[in-house]
Nucleic acid binder design. Structure first.
Lengths: 198, 198
DNA sequence: CAAATATAAGTAAACGTTTATTTATTTAAT
DNA sequence: ATTAAATAAATAAACGTTTACTTATATTTG
């Protein structure tokens, strides 16, 4: 029998992210995607049930999966709070800087009802109790190092500014001078940390 | 001659926001919108050039316009920094809490290339120099009260966590206990402020 | 060790439906 | 009677998905 072509699978995902980044999720169609990936529309349906199934798997497996791996590199829940948060911020910045199409879909994760639902179900399924970041926050709360906010709140305070700053980074790529440098990001990170320390 | 019906104009905008909030911007079509607003598709085109024109005007005029008015209520650029930021946060929370459909489109403002482009052009057009918030930040920087970050950076640090916390508020509406209360939001606001003070 | 077979991978072209938008007509108020 | 507002119905193009067919390879056969 004929073996599955991994390149085609990859072309589908890569081109989908490119179209989403350039034209928006609203303008991604299966036929457009097939043409961009240089395959027949039917081929997509050999690998995915339908458009929803494809988008959810693209978002959860490809985009969020890789993003989570990237931000946790060299990170440990037992790190000092300041060092740990800085590590995550810098990992995220480096990864997103070099993966603009993935970042485009990450941003849709908060707005699109389809993706948002998928994300919440994923978090509920995993119980969120095995996540190194969860442990990291828990350790620092019980040690009395940071304020005792619920985890969802801490995540909003720690993560949201970072995502917005990466957005600014990409916006500033079209302007004469980039303001979102690694130094600027470090300073911002320190501000966020300072706010959370007891 | 027959006068324009303001109710129809309003129905179009209201129903559009409802569809976007429930099904996502991806699933808003002109025909679906017309049916929901109980009018002919053609009627939308009497008031807007095309779909893009409609979405941009809905976003800029209706949603962002009302949002900006709401957050600036009883705010003054000469307020004490802590008081000013708290005022803006609470105004935003009260407004968004009661305008979930508008909030849905605000979130798309960062992800959808169409809306994002419109937003940036609006900001560039206005020069951003007349905004009370701009003046507020400028005053507090020059007075040496807060760190000297670029305005876009300050906006990310001040605004992004708030938007994420409002998202959490809506997510928690489906759960037994709401964690995003006004008290919680005040504490979060204080954390953010603490991080920015010199 | 070729040639034949089996079978999943892949395609081209089509399906009925929905899309954004328009044409031709009717309606309502001055 | 006039005129813009509003509509019902239609347009071509694009949509998600499927049908019917071809291709490529791993395995079986002679």
């Amino acid at each position: 029998m004929r073996p599955k072509s991994l390149e085609k699978e990859e072309a589908i995902r890569t081109m989908a992210l490119q179209i989403i980044a350039k034209e928006g999720l609203e303008n991604l169609s299966m036929q457009k995607l097939a043409k961009a990936a240089n395959i027949s529309p039917r081929t997509i349906y050999l690998k995915y049930e339908n458009k929803e199934d494809f988008l959810i798997k693209l978002f959860i497996e490809e985009v969020l999966g890789n993003y989570e791996s990237a931000i946790l590199e060299d990170f440990s829940p037992t790190m000092d709070f300041t060092e740990g948060v800085k590590k995550i911020w810098m990992n995220a910045f480096q990864y997103l800087k070099n993966n603009k199409p993935s970042f485009a879909l990450i941003k849709y994760g908060k707005s699109s009802p389809l993706l948002n639902k998928a994300y919440q179900q994923k978090n509920i399924k995993q119980g969120d109790y095995f996540s190194p970041i969860h442990n990291f926050l828990e350790l620092n709360i019980t040690a009395g190092i940071i304020k005792n906010f619920p985890h969802d709140v801490l995540r909003a305070l720690l993560n949201a500014p970072l995502i917005d700053l990466v957005s600014e980074y990409f916006d500033y790529l079209d302007r004469p001078q980039q303001i979102i440098t690694e130094e600027m990001l470090t300073e911002c990170c320190e501000s966020v940390i300072k706010g959370l320390l007891k």
